[in-house]
Design a protein around this nucleic acid. Structure first.
Lengths: 244, 244
DNA sequence: TGACTATACATGTATATACAAGCAGAATAT
DNA sequence: ATATTCTGCTTGTATATACATGTATAGTCA
């Protein structure tokens, strides 16, 4: 929403001046905009004030700056809404329910091709694998099928995942810097139906996530949830997507 | 990821100084941090440099500033990943396919209670309602059931939604400032199965969204997609959620 | 003609100084 | 006891000046 307070700070006026030129098409993507000293002359502001305005536009993704070269109009980026990352334990606790879990499998194993691809590892390389069920107040609510890159979390398999979720373990260890996720709907297979205690016809929500910490792929997880018991969502401000 | 370039700019050193105190627990949420002039004395920097550092921490959501009062440690916010908002037409075009649509219903009607609630309107007030199917290369892929607040888009019903999607129409008209969305999985009912040309046992992905423009609720839409043909996802940097 | 150097211009960072605006609390007046 | 004013401290904004760093281009020399 436009900020209509008046008088506008000069740095905001400078931002608007640049944005007006960009939004109106006068300065197209890739165009070098006037230098700071040119804008100083044009708008009669100080260089520090101009620098603050342009720097903020840069952080916001409207322009791209290159020291010694200039300032260029950035490619417009798609609008995005934020999606909260939460651990299943936190979600359940937030509902006032009690989380518990059962470990079906927790081992080191040679990665099959799909898993190796997902973790950017060599096929056959050893990966950590956890297969488990999360329960809310004793009722199964989610199957977690997770593979972890041992290099990223060497002690992962030592953890007791009935006491701390794999997600919490990894988040405590490494900053997540990038996530890829896919949300889809499918039916559970026979084993999954049994683990989740649902009928074969119940639709399920599947969330697939890959996470990176810096340049390293950390984990690949598939979370399967009965559609009648689980949804994903939230309410957030809309922002422009841009890479930090 | 920490920026390890050296020497660090002084404003970054100041940011790190504050973040170290916050992350270590020395300054808990709600604590007033030292004033700018106190930090000037402590770190031997100029007030403009300190101001820049603290202002950036404020924009990033780590601290909250109140003019004339002070700077306070903000509540930690959950990590979030960005979710791209796209029109179904754009999604289909991005796959190199052709989008088309069929309008089942497009009318003004009194809002039932659930719709009125969703749009923050009085029950029985007139709302615009569009019920339609989106197709990709002739195959139905999504049912769109949308209600729009007439005050936000008075000319909405005049649009030909076989030529422009309701989403594109609204986006062209109003800036979206806030979105609430829920993704869930359910089975389609008999009518929906027929419209989507799917069997009764096919699991479906349902996306519900409410959108605001400023303080006004603009639209409430439910999008139903066969699980075999549709998923939602993307890959983004992780960021802290914070309100702009 | 190519390599090297110098120059100009760009952004990046920093300081000193000043004034504006907001807020909380102390001091004063009624 | 209450209202008003004043003071001190805080953040917000702005300018002038300076130096650092990066890049592109022109000029010079072998």
């Amino acid at each position: 929403m436009l900020d209509d307070t008046w008088p506008r700070p000069l740095y905001q006026t400078i931002k608007d001046y640049v944005l007006d030129h960009i939004d109106s098409g006068k300065w197209k993507s890739g165009t070098r905009i006037p230098s700071e000293s040119e804008i100083v002359k044009t708008l009669g502001a100080s260089r520090m004030t101009v620098n603050r305005a342009i720097r903020e536009l840069s952080v916001e993704g409207h322009v791209k700056r290159i020291q010694g070269v200039g300032t260029f109009v950035a490619e417009p980026k798609p609008k995005a809404t934020l999606f909260e990352i939460r651990s299943i334990g936190d979600e359940i606790a937030a509902r006032g329910s009690k989380h518990s879990s059962g470990i079906i499998l927790q081992q080191s194993e040679p990665a099959i091709d799909a898993v190796a691809d997902a973790l950017d590892m060599e096929p056959g390389a050893l990966v950590f694998h956890v297969y488990m069920v999360h329960c809310e107040d004793g009722h199964p609510i989610q199957i977690e099928d997770r593979y972890v890159n041992p290099a990223a979390a060497p002690d992962f398999l030592e953890e007791d995942f009935t006491k701390v979720t794999p997600s919490d373990h990894l988040l405590a260890l490494l900053p997540v810097t990038e996530i890829e996720h896919t949300i889809s709907s499918r039916l559970a297979d026979e084993d999954e139906c049994e683990l989740l205690d649902i009928s074969a016809s119940e639709p399920c929500l599947e969330l697939c996530r890959r996470s990176w910490s810096g340049s390293r792929t950390v984990t690949h997880v598939r979370l399967l949830n009965p559609g009648s018991k689980y949804n994903v969502g939230g309410r957030f401000k809309v922002t422009d997507t841009h890479n930090s």
